[in-house]
Design a protein around this nucleic acid. Structure first.
Lengths: 106, 106
DNA sequence: AGGTTATTTGGCAAAACAACCAAACAAAAC
DNA sequence: GTTTTGTTTGGTTGTTTTGCCAAATAACCT
């Protein structure tokens, strides 16, 4: 694996890793139908604001979301919405696993 | 976020997280056009066999790949091939980030 | 200015992860 | 049946990640 190839795969892994945490995936999914401010995002999650803020910054750092400050609120949005189009396939992976386990019980 | 919803999002995050490591993403991509044995996969990666084996087991645990033993070799394959169809979108995220940085230099 | 609200940052302890080594297994070859 | 080959498991160590707290910042309100 050479330099350029390696850099690309590392960049891709970073994006996937950013989404690879339940809280962050949930946050990204909340942005599916438009931007939301941190307060809207944080409310349903029973976690510290600082925790949410850090998760958002991981997503931002990975290039998944972007934030814009308006007034005293910060609004986040998906930068590349196709990122959520993947979820049906991810769910298919999970379903395949469940199906397999069910077959073991037969 | 209730129990069932939570379990689903955790399962999805687990899949994404499994792919969220350069070595594991590379391994998954190697399986795009059919199964390969561990030895074939490990050879180009200059890492310990045990390291590769553990990465493969993370992918297996997440339901991304499945292994089958034939003779003394173990052959791994993608369980749900659509998992790689996502990469163009992931690349789009990276490109958007690069483009943005370029604009800063103008 | 001083106070309040929304969000980020820094610091810290606990938990999870990654990579290596050595040892265990399992199937094949001798 | 012992050795060799391919792969996994267990153990260790260093690094990274998480999540909470307290403090800092930033913009609005009075």
């Amino acid at each position: 694996m050479k330099g350029k190839q390696k850099a690309l795969i590392e960049a891709k892994a970073k994006v996937l890793k950013a989404l690879g945490h339940p809280t962050r995936l949930w946050l990204a999914e909340q942005l599916a139908d438009g931007e939301k401010c941190v307060c809207e995002l944080a409310e349903p999650l029973e976690a510290d604001f600082s925790t949410i803020s850090k998760h958002l910054s991981v997503l931002k750092e990975a290039g998944v979301i972007a934030g814009q400050k308006r007034g005293k609120m910060v609004y986040y949005r998906l930068k590349v919405p196709c990122i959520l189009k993947y979820m049906p396939c991810v769910e298919a992976v999970i379903e395949a696993g469940i199906k397999e386990q069910a077959e073991l019980l037969e």
